[in-house]
Lab assay of single mutants.
Amino acid sequence: NQASVVANTLIPINTALTLVMMRSEVVTPVGIPAEDIPRLVSMTVNRAVPLGTTLMPDMVKGYA
């Protein structure tokens, strides 16, 4: 099973992502692959992402 990116904290809308905000976890449904974490750093989220939420491609500006 592939690990996905999961919010390690509440990420407010329009926040630039940092490494400490994200962790990898095997979850269903599958979200952004964990190997993309380095690429996500400094990208911003377009909605509030609660703790434990899987990051989906449409949640990160410029990812999809």
Results as ranks from 00 to 15, higher is better:
17 L>Q: 00
15 T>Q: 09
20 V>K: 11
38 P>K: 10
37 I>F: 03
23 R>Y: 07
38 P>Y: 06
40 L>S: 00
10 L>P: 15
53 T>P: 01
10 L>T: 13
48 A>C: 06
41 V>Y: 05
31 G>H: 01
40 L>T: 00
38 P>E: 08
59 M>C: 04
18 T>P: 00
10 L>S: 13
30 V>S: 13
22 M>D: 02
56 M>Y: 10
15 T>S: 06
35 E>K: 06
32 I>A: 02
5 V>K: 02
63 Y>N: 03
47 R>H: 15
13 I>Y: 09
7 A>T: 10
14 N>D: 14
14 N>I: 03
21 M>L: 07
43 M>T: 05
40 L>K: 00
26 V>Y: 07
20 V>M: 15
42 S>L: 12
54 T>K: 04
62 G>N: 12
20 V>L: 14
42 S>M: 13
15 T>F: 08
18 T>G: 05
64 A>M: 15
45 V>Y: 00
2 Q>G: 15
25 E>C: 05
28 T>R: 03
58 D>C: 15
15 T>H: 13
29 P>R: 03
29 P>K: 05
11 I>N: 02
24 S>Q: 12
27 V>D: 02
5 V>P: 01
45 V>R: 00
35 E>W: 06
25 E>N: 08
22 M>T: 02
27 V>G: 03
52 G>F: 06
24 S>W: 06
25 E>S: 10
7 A>Y: 02
59 M>R: 03
57 P>T: 08
62 G>F: 06
41 V>I: 12
42 S>F: 12
43 M>F: 11
4 S>G: 06
29 P>L: 06
31 G>M: 02
38 P>V: 12
19 L>G: 05
35 E>C: 13
7 A>P: 02
64 A>H: 15
22 M>L: 11
14 N>Q: 10
53 T>L: 12
19 L>N: 13
49 V>M: 05
19 L>D: 10
3 A>E: 14
57 P>I: 05
32 I>W: 02
4 S>M: 02
18 T>Y: 03
12 P>T: 12
31 G>K: 01
26 V>C: 06
60 V>A: 01
6 V>L: 13
27 V>S: 04
23 R>N: 06
2 Q>Y: 09
26 V>F: 08
45 V>S: 11
